[in-house]
Write a protein that binds this DNA or RNA. Structure first.
Lengths: 154, 154
DNA sequence: GTAAACTAAATTGCGCACAATTAAACAGTG
DNA sequence: CACTGTTTAATTGTGCGCAATTTAGTTTAC
């Protein structure tokens, strides 16, 4: 963006911030009966897709560091969704895998989400467009932030 | 959205979540020299626009409750950006107004933000489009959430 | 083979977000 | 005036996010 677009960036950042919080609030309504939070649901979805992932891999996909994931996964283990297992070959790593409870939650949790998201009035076409636009923003910001931290090291 | 769009909603929610976090991370880089956080910057911008606002009004505009604003404003007062004054006519209310430091920060803070956001490669046209799309999502979600809480009360 | 560089998880500390509750003050009604 | 309902801020408790650091383990270079 060029120099005259302060206001656009401000509006866009704020819109993303509000939209994200509202969307998560909607998801939390569906997740509340399961005592799951949105970030925990994200972890479950990753594991439903591919079980037995190292903590590090989950972090890469969700853009979470160990400082976020370690306590989050501890809570999820306490509540019986997952288990955390050390790796024999590399004792730094931790493999996360689903419990039976975690696996069996997939269908009812997905249904609860669907029950709410299906009530959205937004057309799928507009949703698709928003998705593409926001992914472009993500790519742009990732590039910019990577470049910034490169500058900082100098 | 219709029932077949679980995956779209999931992707959209996650994209908003990631984009929001990345954008805020960019803003925090600009705000760090001033020891300001992004939500604190939002409050400052509201007050630069219109000083002497009640806590409640700030909360409405930013979609924050008193449970978020009360400690946030306390920290901002401690750091000299604002002052919190009781109202004579209604002792429940609290008027927030800028200090000299808070007023004088407008130009340097805005410049620091501009310095970073101007480096975005995203075209203003695309930014505009994303803004419009996301505002539609916000409106949709607000409507849906308001309706949901109406159901809950029954 | 071992010192240095690297990698991964955990820890620490702070500041949000937000649900739920409490407490205080105000406004309207009979 | 007392009563009821509403509005507003504050409080409490939980769970992220994330910068910065620490600890432990592994790989690489010499």
């Amino acid at each position: 963006m060029n120099v005259s677009d302060q206001s656009l960036a401000n509006q866009l950042c704020f819109a993303l911030y509000r939209a994200s919080r509202l969307y998560i609030k909607l998801y939390q309504q569906a997740l509340q009966p399961f005592a799951l939070t949105y970030p925990q649901y994200l972890v479950l979805r990753m594991l439903w897709e591919a079980d037995h992932q190292p903590l590090h891999t989950l972090g890469t996909q969700l853009d979470f560091g160990s400082n976020t994931l370690t306590p989050l996964l501890r809570r999820m283990e306490q509540r019986g969704w997952i288990q955390r297992r050390p790796v024999a070959t590399d004792r730094r790593q931790l493999i996360i895998h689903l419990t039976d409870q975690g696996r069996q939650a997939q269908i009812p949790v997905s249904q609860a989400i669907q029950q709410l998201t299906s009530q959205q009035q937004l057309s799928p076409t507009e949703g698709q467009l928003a998705l593409v636009e926001n992914q472009a923003i993500i790519a742009d910001l990732q590039h910019l932030l990577a470049h910034q931290s490169f500058i900082k090291e100098k």
